[in-house]
Design a protein around this nucleic acid. Sequence first.
DNA 1: AAACAGGCCTAAA
DNA 2: TTTAGGCCTGTT
Length: 270
Amino acid sequence: MEEVEIRTEDDFDLKKIFECGQCFRWNAGPDGSYTGVAMGRAARIRRDGERILITGSEWDLEDVWRGYFDLDRDYRALRHSVCVDDYMKKASDYGAGIRILNQDRWETLCSFIISQCNNIPRIKKIVETMCRCFGEETYLGDERFYTFPDAGTVAGLEPEDLAPLRCGYRAPYIIAAARAVDEGTLDLEALSHADLASAKKALTALPGIGEKVANCVILFSLRIGSAFPVDVWMKKAIAQHYPRGFDPEVFGENAGLAQQYMFYYQRENS
DNA sequence: AAACAGGCCTAAA
DNA sequence: TTTAGGCCTGTT
């Protein structure tokens, strides 16, 4: 086991990053650290002043985590850039410290298929069971974890094989997505270089993936910052603060981050 | 017990 | 183009 240390003076709040709804595999410990599995490795992360300390396997390279936490972008500046009115000023102040993670594309696609019409505890449980059933073992010291199964593995399964997940009608959607990724019909890597509209079009062509799930996948794993997922919380926020309607294009390439501030502010204050 | 949960799909206006 | 109802399952 090794410890990677990353220094940053930028916005960085572990609790907000992991609990603003973008990921499902990190869990808080009693000491404020978070433990989880990402990119095929288990890790424990804590913050100490300007230091971010990541305990993981010997392959844990700083670059990997810099990419994951999007540490090469200046979130303080981005945060100020989305303060287009009093409400956004409040929301972004409240959410200061949020960062948009660069997550594994297939895992994100699959996780957000599962998320539909579900609550967070159940989403996490289903994802965890999926890893336990079909992922690979990985260790953090003596603690055993399971990686997220790759698309090729899931592509070889049938919907019935997912019965232990208790994910109901989403099972065939998961299998179809896995096969599309595995066969190359859906090239997520290529989509990360595409524009928002074409990425959305490609994703929503799959069964069980609509506008909302597509936007989440695009924002949280394809690194296209203009994606703007609208779920029930966002609908409430918009109805409350923009009764005359509003266009996320006012935020340009940072619409996704603006959405995260709005979402987090709405959810934490209801 | 019935309704609802971080949607999506289909059928019908 | 918008709207209603159904969908697996778990929880309240």
